[in-house]
């Protein structure tokens, strides 16, 4: 009898310890791992850009003559008119860095191609099949609300007019949020359409959609934010106004 009681209580203590360890893993350890992974991805991008071949850009062209010679790359909402169609993004590889001043002045995350679970552990994920960064249509990106670095923890604070700035190594793209967090259900795939019906946009354009989960620790709903491309400028022109303090 005594042995039974002792064994049962030991098992209970073990189970409790396991649960506590799992919570530590979720709240703390995934964040540590994700911060390291995102840092690596951003380093990776900077190295690639420093070598002069941005992933997704024309591999034959070096960025300098390309951007200076191209009159399309001015501060107007117009996609860079690349001479050759750019190479498609590689699944699971980073191709851009996103900055959202509202989420923190130092908030910056890599954007990777694809929304697989493993990809989202290393940064934000670009929905395959949606527009390219700065391209015509809807550039849709998903990110974790909680765990894995909590990239979109403060998602509900995003407001109309907030800047979402991205760079692909050659160009800064400044998007402006038009509609604050919109709550929907996970099956609502319309929100990443080229012209999302509920966003209020009526015609074709260069849009950005961010998605994350809601509630914070749940998965019953999704939060959506829509933005339009406000301006672009070459990286040689310095950081866009939205990122200057």
């Amino acid at each position: 009898m005594r042995v039974v009681v002792r064994t049962v209580s030991e098992l209970c203590v073990t189970a409790g310890t396991l649960i506590v360890l799992f919570v530590v893993y979720l709240l703390f350890w995934t964040g540590v791992r994700a911060d390291g992974a995102m840092h690596d991805q951003i380093d990776d991008l900077h190295h690639t850009w420093a070598r002069g071949s941005a992933p997704g850009a024309d591999p034959g062209a070096t960025p300098d003559p390309d951007t200076t010679a191209d009159p399309g790359r001015t501060a107007v909402p117009q996609a860079p008119a690349d001479p050759a169609p750019p190479a498609p993004y590689t699944a699971g590889r980073p191709f851009a860095i996103m900055y959202v001043p509202r989420l923190g002045f130092t908030w910056n995350k890599p954007v990777l191609q694809g929304t697989a679970a493993d990809t989202l552990k290393k940064g934000l994920g670009h929905y395959p099949g949606t527009a390219r960064l700065g391209g015509r249509g809807n550039f849709a990106v998903a990110g974790h609300r909680r765990t894995y670095g909590d990239p979109f923890k403060d998602f509900p604070q995003l407001r109309h007019g907030d800047a979402v700035v991205l760079t692909d190594g050659t160009t800064w793209f400044t998007y402006r949020i038009d509609k604050g967090p919109y709550k929907t259900v996970p099956t609502d795939v319309e929100v990443i359409d080229p012209v999302p019906r509920k966003s209020g946009y009526t015609g074709a354009g260069r849009y950005l959609t961010l998605t994350t989960c809601d509630p914070e620790w749940g998965h019953s709903h999704r939060l959506i934010v829509w933005a339009h491309l406000d301006s672009t400028q070459p990286v040689e022109a310095g950081k866009p106004a939205a990122l200057r303090r």
């Binding site: 799992f22 893993y25 979720l26 989202l120 609300r145 929100v191 989960c213 998965h219 999704r222 959506i224």
Partner: peptide, 16 residues
């Protein structure tokens, strides 16, 4: 834990 973690809802952030 990496195996058990996808069984929880924190990974579901996409709409499709």
């Amino acid at each position: 834990f990496p195996w058990a973690e996808p069984l929880l809802p924190f990974n579901d952030v996409t709409v499709d």
